[in-house]
C-alpha cells in the first residue's frame, strides 16, 4: 500500500472504526452507512479526493445482512491516488444517506443504483427511476431478478416458436 494512502486509512480507522482489505494494490475501506457522508466530506476536502470516479452496488443475495455493498470509487488527481469505500447495507430496508451534498455526480449515480437495486438514498433531491421506464416493476440488477431469457429460434423449433411469438398486426 502506498504510504500516503496508509496514513489516510489509519485516520479513517481511528475516526470511524472502519476496517479495510487489500487486493492487487487496491484498498477497500468498509464504512458504516450513517458515517459515509462524513467520510466522503473528509476525503473530499481534507485529502483532495476531488473525483468520485465510480459509484455502484453489488447484491450478495441470498445473504440478508448485509445483502448489498454500495461502492464509492474515489480518485485524487493531485496525489494520483485511488481509494474504494464500501458500505454494507441490509436487505430488508436498504437505506444509505445521499452523497449529493458532497459530489454532484452522485445525483445520477444514486438514481441508477436506486433504479437497479432498489436501495433508497435518504434525502435525494430527485428520486425517480433513471434507466428503466417509470412504471417498471422490480429492480433488474438484483440477483433474484430473472435475466429474462427468451428461447432462440432454430430450424428444428422454428414453427413452434413462430406460432406463439407476439407479432404485431399492422
Amino acid at each position: 500500500m502506498d504510504t500516503r494512502l496508509e496514513k489516510i486509512v489509519q485516520v479513517l480507522q481511528e475516526k470511524t472504526g472502519a476496517t479495510f482489505e487489500e487486493f492487487r494494490d487496491e484498498v477497500h475501506v468498509f464504512v458504516d452507512a450513517e458515517k459515509i457522508v462524513d467520510v466522503l466530506t473528509f476525503l473530499r476536502y481534507e485529502h483532495d479526493f476531488a473525483l468520485l470516479s465510480a459509484m455502484t452496488a453489488v447484491d450478495y443475495w441470498p445473504k440478508e445482512d448485509p445483502r448489498f455493498h454500495v461502492i464509492y470509487q474515489l480518485t485524487s488527481l493531485t496525489q494520483n491516488l485511488s481509494l474504494q469505500l464500501r458500505v454494507p447495507v441490509n436487505g430488508s430496508q436498504p437505506k444509505v444517506p445521499t452523497a449529493t451534498g458532497v459530489f454532484d455526480v452522485a445525483n445520477w449515480r444514486e438514481r441508477e443504483i436506486m433504479d437497479m437495486f432498489g436501495i433508497e438514498f435518504e434525502g435525494h433531491p430527485d428520486p425517480r427511476r433513471i434507466l428503466m421506464p417509470q412504471d417498471w416493476d422490480g429492480h433488474p440488477l438484483r440477483k433474484d431478478y430473472p435475466l429474462g431469457y427468451e428461447e432462440p429460434q432454430f430450424t428444428f423449433n422454428f414453427e413452434e416458436i413462430d406460432l406463439r411469438k407476439p407479432y404485431v398486426k399492422e
Binding site: 433488474p140 435475466l147 429474462g148 431469457y149 427468451e150 432462440p152
Partner: peptide
C-alpha cells in the same frame, strides 16, 4: 437476450 431488449422489432 435479456429483460431490457425487445426480442425483434416485429413485435412492435
Amino acid at each position: 437476450n435479456n429483460y431490457a431488449i425487445v426480442q425483434g422489432v416485429d413485435e412492435v
